[in-house]
Design a binder for these strands. Structure first.
Length: 902
DNA sequence: GAGCACTGC
């Protein structure tokens, strides 16, 4: 067996990137300035030259295979055919039109008869009186008049006013009553899947109908609708996909966009498109639904569209700030005990100012400002730190509520896994709260396994108090009805995007007033409640009105690709029309990345690859990984990895058994040094377990989320269908026909490399340790949850990663160890090195050296591979294994020659 | 050497 021993030859060249960092120029970046991790830039940035070692045997084989390929490709000249888009027949004959008119008239009157008869059904009376009590009901006529008179209408209303369920319903009833039922098509968008389903279900039941009749819903991979459906509730993402096919939303009569104040990326993107669409569709009616807090913003955006306000109804919630809490609970914040570093207020004042909101408090003269409060309170305020969460204070407040306040569940908002875990431990050790008969303490975090989902929602047994320790997930995604007390620590982890360093960040920051309001509202769902804010009033006053919109906080490559596919013109000028346009540098980064991936050409136009990527609901890198995976016969693992990366990691993080969970994940990875392979193995094992009917125990034992795995499975099917739509696979041949190399680790890693490039890490040995470096930010760390964490010596010189995030440090979360051949054949384009005889990649960040004839051989192979791939992209039905037999075989040969495992 | 906000096609 041919085995090439790979020697890693390290050579520091002191390479620096002046374009990426301007020394002396400060980084202006969202709310949190970056610490100076670039201090010893030159030292850290030393670029490594990788010497390519190729055995004579391998060289001869690759040489031979390539020679065969040459003769092969000559006799089969490219026969790429231009596919013409079939245009839909635009004009239907007048005869069919009049038949449709008659049909529609009949249908409209049927719909009206049905609507009227349902009003007489048992239960309809009580349902109607319930609806009449909602604040929205009083506005019914006014609302309908405004919809008729204005193309755009902005509705502002607080939770509990009934706007989401009533307004679309009013329109539906009105249209049906006026015999326009057959012609109307109402779409209502929701930002989340669950809310789309529950809104549709609620409206259907209020109308006394089955879901899917006149009222239906559609979310990804799931819908309940019929030809009867006149009101469709869908997620914003579904509507955006529909716009790709139907840019004018032909046939839609009314569009209601809900929760627009949340400023999600999809919603912000949608309203730019809609503002441009309205003049082309004068008959379309648009209703924007927002919380009261920022309705004017949207009205202005749509040329002073009228605003209608609907008062809300929730139970009153008493609000207590830190000073009131200290006064009431007599809790004492003790410097030595509670503040680990013993930061006194004065010491903190002397150090660097942290953030404007904390500063708002640090600047206050406590003895003056809090003159009406007790000395103990003032001393506690003096000792309190705005930068570190004081868990003892949280616990003390919980204890106070349990001792002195009435019944009702307590909901505690914390920032993350760590805080939840620590507080849980603390409570369990507490004498009063440790009494397990009296308290039910439940952690609630997106990646914790939901052992007993019901426990969170159900009322606890009598004389038992439920205490939920949650993240932001409880702010809008999960609603716990019986909450009476909310504890708000005032912070949440928030993503931001540092365009200068091309770096996504996930850091705790102060929430906005809007979030604080939302958290408070969680206490008043069933009865009057109390909200304990564990920060001073002055800090609340200093909080931002709203969170920064998502479009300003995330990388934009996927959005930019969608803009191109919708033919909305130049990306930068289109995005400049947004309510709050993103930083031009972020746009530039996204376009550069799309060019690197090969989705856009130099003129910023979509390439053939780019057009394929538009059809896949994936980040362009992951989409490319999937396409290359199908091309190179690794479809099964590519589907799994794409699904996991696009949705969420199926591995859960149990609060008390995380070491075990870590070990299980590592055992799935084996010696692959790959989180992506661990995912694939876990998914395969799940499928096997499901076949033999032991899914539940398998998931439990292996710390996997059955719901996530199920969703991944569905997404895999969706991706397969989409690949079939664009001709890369044939459904009749099935998945197995595209998976010849599915178990071949080197091939799967090469496919990962093709997709994840330019997300490459250089592993540099430094004595006993390995340092990890990327082009954009220099030194990075392997995330401790990765199977690659703690490995000091990797068999291969590079890692590719799916995500790099700055939290406590800059981490690559999921990574795979790859060879230099994988990079050379499937990475970025190769360039002649400016300094020597070698070749380079990634704008000169990665260098490879070898004897001249080896370099030439590799470049020749790479050239043939690129040509073959290009033909395949232009002509997806092409069989590259017969067409480019020699080239593929040569590539496989080379990848296998670095097999260090067998 | 020590960590994992949340949505969506």
């Amino acid at each position: 067996m041919d085995r090439t021993y790979l020697q890693i030859w390290l050579k520091d060249k002191g390479f620096t990137y002046s374009n990426a960092y301007n020394k002396g120029k400060t980084v202006v970046f969202s709310k949190v300035p970056l610490p100076d991790y670039r201090a010893d830039l030159d030292e850290r940035h030393g670029s490594t030259q990788q010497e390519i070692k190729m055995s004579n045997e391998t060289e001869r084989r690759v040489e031979n295979l390539l020679a065969k390929a040459k003769s092969n490709s000559n006799d089969s000249a490219s026969t790429s055919t231009l596919t013409m888009r079939q245009s839909r027949s635009s004009a239907s004959s007048s005869v069919t039109e009049s038949i449709i008119d008659i049909d529609n008239e009949r249908l409209s009157s049927e719909l009206r008869d049905m609507q009227n008869s349902r009003k007489l059904m048992p239960g309809a009376r009580s349902m109607q009186s319930f609806r009449e009590k909602l604040p929205a009901f009083k506005m019914r006529e006014e609302f309908l008049k405004a919809v008729a008179a204005n193309q755009v209408l902005v509705i502002s209303g607080e939770t509990g006013c009934g706007k989401t369920t009533q307004l679309p319903q009013f329109i539906l009833e009105e249209e049906i009553d006026n015999l326009r039922g057959a012609d109307c098509s109402i779409i209502c968008t929701q930002p989340r899947r669950i809310s789309a389903i529950s809104v549709a279900a609620r409206v259907a039941s209020e109308r006394g109908e089955e879901l899917g009749d006149t009222v239906g819903y559609q979310i990804r991979l799931e819908s309940k609708r019929s030809t009867q459906t006149r009101l469709m509730v869908c997620t914003t993402g579904i509507l955006l996909r529909r716009l790709v096919q139907e840019p004018d939303l032909v046939g839609v009569s009314h569009l209601l966009v809900d929760e627009i104040h949340e400023r999600g990326m999809n919603e912000d993107f949608l309203i730019i498109i809609l503002r441009d669409l309205l003049p082309r569709r004068p008959d379309l009616r648009l209703v924007l639904m927002s919380a009261t807090i920022n309705a004017e913003l949207f009205s202005k955006y749509f040329g002073e569209a009228p605003i209608m306000h609907i008062p809300g109804f929730t139970f009153p919630v008493t609000e207590l700030f830190l000073e009131d809490i200290l006064e009431k609970t007599r809790y004492k914040i003790n410097l030595e005990r509670d503040n680990f570093q013993g930061n006194s207020r004065r010491k903190r004042l002397a150090s660097i100012k942290s953030d404007p909101i904390s500063d708002a408090f640090e600047d206050v003269d406590i003895y003056k400002e809090y003159g009406n409060y007790s000395i103990a309170t003032r001393q506690s305020l003096e000792a309190w730190s705005a930068t570190e969460l004081n868990l003892s204070l949280v616990e003390g407040t919980i204890e106070y509520i349990c001792r002195h306040e009435g019944e009702g569940a307590i909901l505690v908002f914390l920032t993350g896994w760590d805080e939840i875990s620590k507080l849980l431990d603390k409570i369990k050790g507490n004498n009063l709260l440790g009494n397990s008969n009296k308290f039910l303490v439940l952690p609630l975090h997106g990646s914790m396994p939901t052992v007993n989902q019901c426990e969170i929602f159900d009322r606890p047994p009598a004389n038992m108090r439920k205490i939920v320790l949650a993240t932001n997930i409880a702010e809008s995604s999960i609603t716990i009805d019986d909450v009476v007390y909310v504890l708000d620590c005032g912070k949440a982890k928030e993503t931001s995007y540092d365009a200068l360093n091309k770096l996504a960040c996930l850091l705790p920051s102060w929430i906005s007033k809007a979030s604080a309001h939302q958290r408070r509202g969680r206490a008043g769902r069933v009865q009057p409640g109390v909200c304990y804010r564990l920060y001073p009033k002055v800090m609340y006053d200093a909080m931002l009105q709203f969170q920064l919109p998502e479009i300003l906080r995330t990388p934009l490559q996927e959005l930019c690709l969608t803009i191109k596919s919708l033919q909305l013109g130049a990306v930068a000028s289109f995005l400049a029309k947004a309510l709050q346009p993103p930083d031009p540098l972020s746009v530039k980064n996204a376009i550069e990345l799309l060019k690197t991936v090969g989705a856009l050409d130099d003129m910023e136009e979509l390439t053939s690859l780019g057009r394929h990527l538009c059809t896949l609901p994936l980040d362009p890198n992951i989409g490319k990984m999937l396409l290359i995976g199908s091309v190179f016969q690794c479809l099964d693992p590519a589907l799994t990895i794409a699904a996991a990366l696009a949705y969420r990691n199926p591995f859960v993080l149990p609060i008390d058994r995380k070491e075990e969970a870590d070990a299980v994940k590592r055992s799935f990875a084996g010696d692959s040094c790959s989180d992506h392979i661990a995912l694939v193995k876990a998914f395969e094992a799940w499928k096997e377990a499901r076949r033999s009917g032991r899914e539940r125990s398998f998931c439990w034992e292996n710390f996997l989320s059955p719901m996530t795995l199920q969703m991944m499975d569905d997404m895999r099917n969706q991706f397969f269908d989409l690949l079939s739509d664009i001709g890369f696979v044939s459904k009749t041949r099935g998945l197995k026909a595209y998976n010849y190399y599915g178990k071949d680790l080197e091939m799967v890693c090469a496919v990962l490399c093709a997709g994840l490039y330019p997300n490459v890490v250089q592993c540099k040995r430094r004595g006993k340790r390995t340092g990890f470096y990327t082009k954009d930010v220099g030194k990075v760390d392997i995330h401790p949850s990765s199977v690659n964490a703690g490995i000091h010596q990797f068999p291969l010189p590079y890692l590719v990663y799916s995500e790099k995030v700055k939290t406590a440090s800059i981490y690559v979360r999921d990574s795979t160890n790859i060879s230099d051949y994988a990079l050379l054949l499937f990475g970025g384009s190769l360039n002649q090195s400016k300094t020597g005889e070698g070749i380079e990649m990634l704008g000169g960040y990665l260098h490879f050296s070898a004897p001249k004839r080896i370099i030439e051989l590799i470049q020749r192979l790479r050239g043939e591979l690129d040509k073959l791939l290009q033909r395949k992209i232009e002509e997806p039905a092409l069989d590259i294994f017969s067409e480019g037999k020699g080239v593929v075989a040569a590539a496989v040969e080379l990848l296998h020659s670095q097999n260090v495992y067998h």
